[in-house]
Design a protein around this nucleic acid. Structure first.
Lengths: 189, 189, 189, 189
DNA sequence: ACTGGCGGGACGTCCCGTTGAT
DNA sequence: ATCAACGGGACGTCCCGCCAGT
C-alpha cells in the first residue's frame, strides 16, 4: 500500500521539474548545483534524488518534456506559434534546449536518446510539411529535408538570439514573413 | 632581455588557442578540464596559465577570435561562405560559439564584453546590407534589424544543427537558396 | 525535521574543534592541509566543511575559543594560573594563539575581528588590575596600560618559548616571582 | 676567473636579504610567494634562487641574521636598547622572528639548527648576566636560567604585541622600569 | 649573470549522490 | 516521504624550483 497517492507523486514530480527548469534556465546545466535546485524546487536533496536518480536524468527528463511541448505547440499553433512561444512562455525552455544541444554534441549515446523522443510529434510535423509541399502551398524545388533544416535553424537560432539579452522585442512577425517568403512557391507572385 | 622571442610567444599563444579549441569543441566548456586542455595543447598547466590567467579567459579569447573570424569570412565570402565555413573549417568554432552563447545567457557582464568584440567587422556587415537594401538587391519592406535577426538565426541555428551529429551532409546550397528567396525583393519575378 | 539532534551537532562541532586544534598546534596554520585536518578530526572534508565554511573560519573559531578560555583561566586562577595553563593543558592553545598573532599582523580586518572577541573577559581582567592598583596591592607609579603590556608580553613570550621545545620544565614559579617583584609597590620591603 | 667581483656578489646577497625581509615582514612566510619576493627584491626568480637554493633557506638566512643582529644590539645597547630596537628599526625583524618561532615549533631539525646560530653572542649575553648576578647588580635568588626565560619572554612578547597593530606608542620606558624592578636585588631599597 | 617560460605537484573548496535518522 | 549529515572524488588555480635561452 503506497503511503501517498499516485497523484501526490505526480504533483511532486511536476513541482521538481518546474523548479528545476527555472534553475537550469537561469544558471545553465553545469552551474546549477544541487543547492540551487533545492532552493528553486523547495525540496531537499533526498526528495529530489528519490524522483530522479541523478542531476543529468532530471535535466534530460526536462529537456524531453520541452522538446515534446515545443513540437506540440508547433502542431497546434503553427511555426509562427512555436516561434512566438520561444520568445514568451517557453523562454526558459529555450535555455534548457540550448544546454541540451550542447550536451548532445559531446555524447553520441545522448544523441541517440534525444532522437527517440516524441517521434509521433516529429512525424506529424514532417507529414504536415510533406502534404503542404505536395499541395503546392510551399515550394517543392528544394528537398523536404532542407525545409526541415531551414525551419530548425530558425527555431534554434531564435533560441540562441532571444537569450542573448540584447533582443528585448524580437520582431517575430517580420521573421515569420521572411520564412513565408523563403518557402513560398516560386510562381507565387 | 626576454628569454624567448616575441615570435615564439605568439607561436605558443596560437598553439594554446588551437589546442584549446579542439578540446572545448569536443567536450564543451565545462567538461573540458585542465587535464584535457593539457593533453590537447601539449603543454603543462604552468605554461597554459602563464598565457591566460584562467580557463574562462582562455575560452573567451578563443570565442573572441572566432567571432571576428566568422565575421571576416562573412565579409570576404558572403553569407553563403560563412555558412559553408560553419560546416567545414569552422566546425570547431561552432562548438565554442555555442558554449559562448550559453555562458552569455547567464552573465550580463560577459554579454557586454561580447558585444564589444570586433565592432568594425560587425559594422562593415551591417553597412553592406544597408547598401544592398537601398540598392534594391534585397527587400526593403522589412526592417534591416529583422534581416539581421533572420540571418543571425540561420547562422546560429546551423551551428547547433551541424553539431547535432545527425547532419553529415548539410544541404547548404538549398539553405542558401531559401535565404535568397526570403530576402529577394517582392517584385523580383 | 533535522536528521540529527542538536546535541549531536554540538558534539560534532566540539569534535572538529578539538581535532583541528591538535592539527593546527602540531603543524601550524599553513602547513595544516585539509588531509591532516581530516585525519586529526576523524571526519571527511564534507563533514568538516559543513560545519565551517573555510579552513580560516575553522581556525578563527578555534582561536576565538582559546582567547576566551585563556582569559577565563586568568580570571579564575590568576595570572600564575594562566601561565601554568600555557605550559600544561593549554599548550596546544599556545600554538594556535601564535599562528593567530602572525595572521593578525598582516590583516587589519582580522585584527578588528580579534579585538572584538570576549570583551567581557578582557574588561573583567582590566578592572581587577585597576582595583589592585587603587588598593595599593600593585605599584601605581606606572600606567595601568604599561602593566597590561608587561603581563601580555610575559604571556605571549611564554607561549613562544614554551613551544620552542628546548624548554621542557619551565620554571613558572620563578617567573611568577619575578613578575610579582616587578609589580610590587616600591615601598614594599 | 669570476666574471663579477666578490663585492658584487655580497652586494646582491644583501639586496636579496633586505627585499626579502620587507616581503616576509609584510605578508608572513607562507603568504610571501616568489612573485612577491621578486617584486620586493627587484630581481627575478633565477637570480634569487642562484643565491639561495630554496625559499626556506632564504628565510632562514634572514632569520639567522636577525637573531645575531638582535643579540648584538642587546650586547651593545643593553636590554633596553634591544627592546627599543624591536619597536623601531627592527620592527620588520620582529615579523620574521615570529614566523621563525612558528616554524621552529613544528620541526625539530630546524630547532637544532636555530640553537646553533650565533653561539658566541648568546654566550656573551649569558656571561654578562652571570657576572651581574655574581656582582649583586641583579638578584641571585632565582636561577640564571629563569632570568633568561624572563627576559626572553619580554622580548618575544613585545615582538608579538608590537605587531598586533593596536600598539602605536609602546611605553618601552615603563616596561624597562618593570623589568628593572623584577631583577633588582631584594634588599635594594 | 640574469631572465622568465615551463613542468607538474599540492592545495582549499565544491559538489553529487548515499545513507541513516526522523 | 523527506531531511540533511557526510564521504570522497575532482576541479581550477597557485606556486616553487629548474633550466633553456640571451
Amino acid at each position: 500500500v503506497p503511503k501517498v497517492s499516485e497523484e501526490h507523486k505526480q504533483e511532486r514530480r511536476r513541482q521538481i521539474l518546474e523548479g528545476a527548469r527555472r534553475a537550469f534556465a537561469e544558471y545553465g546545466y553545469f552551474s546549477t548545483n544541487v543547492g540551487r535546485l533545492e532552493k528553486a524546487i523547495g525540496l531537499s536533496r533526498g526528495a529530489i534524488f528519490s524522483y530522479f536518480p541523478t542531476k543529468l536524468e532530471l535535466f534530460l527528463a526536462l529537456a524531453q518534456d520541452d522538446k515534446r511541448a515545443l513540437g506540440e505547440t508547433w502542431l497546434e499553433h503553427g511555426f509562427e506559434g512555436a516561434l512566438r512561444a520561444l520568445t514568451t512562455d517557453h523562454r526558459d525552455r529555450a535555455g534548457v534546449y540550448l544546454d541540451a544541444s550542447r550536451l548532445l554534441r559531446s555524447d553520441p549515446k545522448l544523441r541517440e536518446r534525444w532522437s527517440s523522443i516524441a517521434p509521433d510529434v516529429v512525424q506529424a510535423i514532417e507529414s504536415r510539411y510533406r502534404k503542404q509541399r505536395q499541395a503546392g502551398t510551399i515550394r517543392n524545388d528544394v528537398p523536404l529535408e532542407t525545409v526541415g533544416l531551414f525551419l530548425g535553424c530558425i527555431l534554434d537560432g531564435l533560441a540562441i538570439q532571444s537569450g542573448a539579452g540584447y533582443l528585448r522585442d524580437v520582431d517575430v512577425s517580420g521573421l515569420v514573413e521572411l520564412v513565408r517568403a523563403a518557402l513560398a512557391p516560386p510562381d507565387a507572385t
